[in-house]
Design a protein around this nucleic acid. Structure first.
Length: 475
RNA sequence: GGUCCCAUCGUCUAAUGGUUAGGACACCACCCUUUCACGGUGGUAAUAUGGGUUCGAAUCCCGUUGGGAUCACCA
């Protein structure tokens, strides 16, 4: 049988990292087996619906290359793929489940149901409507009395099922809540919709957060009552912000789009989150989506929560940036240049210098701030123990450097460096004694991306000489 | 509170009864070097705890502790 998985988010806002990772695992389980990955929108809670949220879902999945085979926008043989458009289907099945004995009509108000739960010792709702004879309940429904359909749990003893990650799970039927399946507005709850849809859409592997482990027996009961076979279950541990808290948008934790806005590459984010809870069994850490499709396996999924470590993601992002072709990096860096630079400098060369030095694109502005204007500094900046320089040395070598640089014919790093190295030899000083002061003069910074001659290459002859003059005046 | 789940360096993880407990990030040192970064080499650092089982336990069993989840007309 063809493997089919689904990503079934509810459109309630931004795409957070935990969600994206679940989608990734669903995608990989399908694709590593040559199966189908589908997208289903779970919008049965009209109160939580956020305008534009589905667009973010589409855009994110597309951006990372997780193409879906069936979904609201592209259709498929098992549609519609938006739950609010499937209302009549759920109604039909819910009433059928009542006939089958797996559910019953309940006329209690929300308040009545809640009121019963005050007892801390027994949180379980004991529904009086469960005992209303079906014929009588049907009459009340027909008479227009408001109702919900609740699951009826008649079994006793232990329920058992197998989870691909957690192994065999055993829960007493006594623990199971007879939850609402069809709300008074006629829409289903997740508890019902997911079962009906997963069956109707022929989903073979249900992948979801491990908070569903203990309610899965309820869903299995519904499958059984309908005479359906239940799917394989793959419950995955949460992605944490720290040891105690899940990563969540509500706490302002980074979403996928936040990370991209900060200059993380989508490919790096996907690579990183794939490894939060899964490992290939080898030392390989860099994986493209295609690589992952080839070697992913549910057996290597982890049981315990993983803390999202932005530091490691940052490192990995740096790997991706360095692996970019030069032109590719330049294209990504350009918008950042445009935001911070008005001076006309050698941007191609700047990119070349910057590429091995940035870990996220967001690092760029901080690296190139001196290009616009020399940063404020005092002559003490020229003091450098290792280079054996101070303001006096700088005054001399800068003047020499200026003379040499004036006569350099090809304004590129190699020529500039050769010329200054030669000058240092002539003067009988260390390279650093001429290059370090030059860096300060050109940038006003102790550390810069690239050496003094690289900065000079970026700035160009005119600006370089002008900055040296300014520095000499300052000394 | 009942029930379920989880537990290896600070973090992500490997080791499915026999390893000097391995790798990666971070951190530190050294090398390379026109600073920084990249790259290279090396280092610090872990089996929560108490009992079993076994010739032998990170690994299997039980208890303890710690953490998480769940008990909605949310998903």
């Amino acid at each position: 049988m063809k493997v089919r998985t689904r990503f079934a988010p509810s459109p309630t806002g931004y795409m957070h990292i935990g969600n994206l990772r679940t989608a990734l695992y669903e995608y990989l389980i399908a694709k590593s087996a040559g199966g189908d990955f589908l997208l289903r929108i779970e919008d049965t809670d009209q109160k939580r619906y956020v305008e534009g949220a589905t667009d973010i879902i589409y855009a994110t999945l597309k951006r990372v290359g997780m193409d879906w085979d069936e979904g609201p926008d592209i259709g498929g043989n098992y549609g519609p793929y938006i739950q609010s458009e499937r209302k009549s289907i759920y109604g039909e099945y819910a009433h059928k489940l009542v006939e089958l004995g797996g559910a019953h009509y309940c006329f209690c108000s929300k308040e009545e149901a809640d009121g019963q739960k005050d007892d801390v010792q027994n949180m379980k709702f004991n529904d009086p409507c469960k005992h209303i004879p079906l014929e009588e309940a049907k009459k009340r429904v027909a008479a227009g009395e408001p109702y919900v359909i609740r699951q009826t749990i008649y079994k006793t003893g232990k329920s058992k099922y197998h989870d691909e990650v957690y192994g065999d799970i055993e829960i007493d039927y006594d623990e199971l809540d007879e939850g609402v399946l069809l709300k008074s507005d006629g829409l289903p709850t997740y508890n019902f919709a997911n079962v009906v849809d997963d069956h109707l859409m022929q989903i073979t592997h249900v992948v979801r957060g491990n908070e569903y482990i203990s309610s899965t027996p309820k869903y299995n009961l519904i499958y059984e009552d309908f005479g359906w076979e239940h799917p394989h279950y793959v419950h995955v541990p949460p992605v944490m912000k720290d040891a105690q808290h899940k990563l969540s948008k509500r706490n302002g934790d980074a979403s996928f789009q936040d990370l991209v806005a900060k200059g993380y590459l989508p490919e790096a984010v996907i690579n990183y989150i794939a490894l939060l809870g899964w490992n290939p069994g080898t030392d390989q850490e860099i994986f493209s989506l295609d690589d992952l499709k080839k070697c992913f396996s549910v057996e290597r999924l982890n049981k315990s929560p993983a803390i999202f470590d932005i530091t490691k993601l940052t490192w990995m992002n740096g790997c991706y940036i360095r692996a970019l072709p030069a032109a590719g990096f330049h294209k990504l860096a350009l918008p950042y240049y445009e935001k911070t630079l008005t001076r006309k400098v050698n941007l191609e060369y700047l990119s070349q210098v910057l590429q091995p030095r940035v870990e996220t694109l967001g690092d760029i502005p901080g690296q190139i701030d001196f290009i616009e204007n020399v940063l404020d500094y005092t002559p003490e900046l020229y003091n450098n123990k290792k280079m054996k320089t101070d303001a006096a040395v700088a005054g001399n070598t800068l003047a020499e450097a200026r003379k040499v640089l004036e006569n350099v014919s090809d304004w590129d790093n190699d020529s500039l460096f050769a010329a200054l190295k030669n000058a240092a030899e002539q003067l009988g000083v260390k390279n650093g004694q001429i290059l370090y002061p030059l860096r300060i003069a050109l940038s006003g910074k102790e550390t810069t991306p690239g050496g003094a001659t690289e900065i000079a290459s970026v700035l160009g002859r005119e600006e370089t000489l002008r900055r040296i003059d300014d520095a000499l005046a300052k000394l």
